[in-house]
Design a protein around this nucleic acid. Sequence first.
DNA 1: TTGAAAGCGGTACCAC
DNA 2: GTGGTACCGCTTTCAA
Lengths: 341, 341
Amino acid sequence: MNLKELAASLNLSPTTVSRALNGYPEVRAETRARVLEAAEAANYRPNSRARRLAMGRSMAIGHVISLSEEAQMINPIFADFLAGAGEVYAREGYDLVLSIVPQDQEAAAYRQLAASGSVDGLMIQAPRCQEPRLPLLKELGLPFIVHGRTDTASDHPWLDIANRSAFKQATNFLLDLGHRRIALVNGLEQFDYAARRRRGYLEALEARGIAPDPAIMRGAEMTESYGYASAAEFLDSDDPPTAFLASSILPAIGIRRAAGERGLRLGRDVSVIAHDDVLSYLYNDGDGPAFTATRSPIRKAGQRCAELLIAQIGAPGGAPVQELWQVELTVGRTTGPCPAT
Amino acid sequence: MNLKELAASLNLSPTTVSRALNGYPEVRAETRARVLEAAEAANYRPNSRARRLAMGRSMAIGHVISLSEEAQMINPIFADFLAGAGEVYAREGYDLVLSIVPQDQEAAAYRQLAASGSVDGLMIQAPRCQEPRLPLLKELGLPFIVHGRTDTASDHPWLDIANRSAFKQATNFLLDLGHRRIALVNGLEQFDYAARRRRGYLEALEARGIAPDPAIMRGAEMTESYGYASAAEFLDSDDPPTAFLASSILPAIGIRRAAGERGLRLGRDVSVIAHDDVLSYLYNDGDGPAFTATRSPIRKAGQRCAELLIAQIGAPGGAPVQELWQVELTVGRTTGPCPAT
DNA sequence: TTGAAAGCGGTACCAC
DNA sequence: GTGGTACCGCTTTCAA
């Protein structure tokens, strides 16, 4: 059943039916009621292909996820972010077009989406410090928003959490507990969020006059085995750390395993703090590290980014929105004072 | 730059240009070369909206992911599957349209995708035993394929791994090591894959005349804390298990934690086997549980499902493909003989 | 308040 | 081998 047929069955013109369906005001109430009822009865849905062509809009947002050698798996963070954004898209009538491509085809994927007009806007995740997509995106001329920041000051829209201050805070927290040797198990530091976290960590140390030791600082893809290997190495060294600051729950689990194997108890012999992207939380051993812990905050970020992007699509040319979210620290039981050694 | 303009700039008709671009044979080689060159120079990309309308096809596949109260997070398995499917879609020129909806809007989401013609096919993940989407999908009349099976024999296309026999094999493996009390830490058993795994487990026990004990069998969403809580409870009981069979790596990590806290060493005091969806692997403690372990096999399944679905879209009405993949067991170091108690 | 008709930007049939 | 043209199904001016 298409518009023409529906109109014919009602003895109305396609024009009127279209107007009635799309909520135009100039339709008589009674006519609209008839149309709505008939459409419902016939289970009519406007053909989205035709609609998109006629409107000159795709009613879709593009997400490009590139898989590289270094980070081959889809980050669970991405999935939670998608979930949040997807909620908003569904509510606003937008489709989510997901392009999953090898990293060397990333630029081509963006170009394709833009040039073919498949999407009305682009959502960018996990920017690097020197984000190569930035000039490309500006060239494409599509609305976009970045979840995260970059090194370069730019007036593009973004939403980010205060990674630096969160890590500074967390480091200070450990320092206040008496720790002096704190290991950093970070994410890949070419990503902006990881670089900022490192800065926060370094700043806190410096403020107390503690020289950072590269021997207990790492940055890599955040897997459990990475956390395990790092912690094992650090703990077996001559001067092991008494605390760990991890960039995500996954390496934190690995750290815990390495500590456990060495007979160390968390919160007594060694402290572990994990930061989970948008809101941080201190690793609560009581109810276990919930893999769902990040869900709610990351989803919120996804939602908000989607809202901002859609607003931008609706009213282009406005001042770019740049939101920085402060992090809320939550203390868990695996954090304890520095053991007296 | 659109087709008409491109054609005008070449002194050709849109028809010819379209044919040249789409590889139709009746174009003179020299003409085609000219067209291709000009298109390249102008960075011309056919407008996908117009193309889709004219062709009557969307060149897109729909994935609907519903979030329920029970399973609110996006399963990492889904992400890896998506990655595999996405690869194939990109290669074949299809878009991936991802709908993320609350569970009570799942059916509406499928209906919307189908009625509006936004997609040419649907990909179904994680079917339940009595899958309510099945009748709906048949009603919609769109090509689809299910990753997994259902209780009801049906002639729809699916691709699944042999969950029952994998778990039977794994259980037998533990039995051969001398274990007699084996805990099952399963996924949500309304999902078909979990139900089949349970069956395999039960069959293996029965074949050796061992009565299953519901006290050491669980089914829930596969998180680390679920594994931890289950193992803690089992291990603290009067008659603790000597081995665990886990449905995924996440609960297995929790199990390990609970065991560790009780001074039990894996592979000596207690055995843990984790099954990771498509290919199983026995939890290798040596290099840590890699969260990326499932990546390759799940991706393969995603790729294959995408290929089958696209083939079906291209040539509808063929015999439905139903593929059952056998599982390959890999032995890891955390599996050991039953401790003599 | 309603309708006729001209697009939107391609594809594909039919004629030359 | 190439071109004219009628679609695809909707939105949106413009006229009534």
